[in-house]
């Protein structure tokens, strides 16, 4: 890339799409509330869809609709078809996620990830009949060779 700033619209769009993905990813990484995470996912998905549309877009072409007249330069139709599918899938997944969130809220009364994590961990442990996790300060009970018997005193 040369350093002179010539606003290439395609590059701007690509940057925008990637930016959306990055913003969504950041939201997923730093979010603590499940619903916000779902929203962040939606944001990132929009970025990915945009990227796909750009992949087949041409500035100097018309919409890919066959009208019977001599075909002018057309925008590649395949990505657009793909994006449609992807959007449908994305919406479906998000709807499912939100439905699951409702169930989670009903079960635990919270959507905060940290709290949920602790609750679920406790739940699993209780179901399995395991005590609290070992402290790092107590290596003697570790299941490794360190905890095995030595020779008799």
């Amino acid at each position: 890339m040369d350093m002179t700033f010539a606003p290439d619209p395609l590059a701007l769009l690509v940057i925008g799409a990637l930016g959306l993905i990055v913003v969504g990813a950041a939201g997923l990484a730093f979010g603590r509330h499940l619903f916000r995470l779902v929203l962040a996912l939606g944001l990132a998905e929009a970025g990915a869809n945009l990227l796909l549309v750009i992949a087949g877009y041409r500035w100097d072409a018309v919409a890919p609709i066959l009208t019977g007249s001599a075909p002018a330069a057309m925008v590649d139709p395949v990505p657009q078809a793909l994006v449609l599918t992807a959007i449908v899938i994305g919406v479906g997944v998000q709807a499912l996620a939100v439905a699951l969130l409702v169930r989670v809220k009903l079960a635990y009364g919270t959507l905060d990830l940290a709290e949920l994590k602790a609750l679920v961990e406790r739940d699993i442990r209780a179901a399995a009949g395991i005590g609290e996790p070992d402290s790092a300060q107590a290596p003697a009970t570790l299941p490794g060779p360190a905890g095995l018997i030595g020779e008799r005193p």
């Binding site: 993905i21 969504g24 990132a44 970025g47 990227l51 750009i54 899938i89």
Partner: peptide, 12 residues
């Protein structure tokens, strides 16, 4: 979900 969108980006 995140994996899928990354895959989608890859496809793009």
């Amino acid at each position: 979900g995140f994996g899928s969108l990354i895959a989608l980006a890859g496809i793009a």
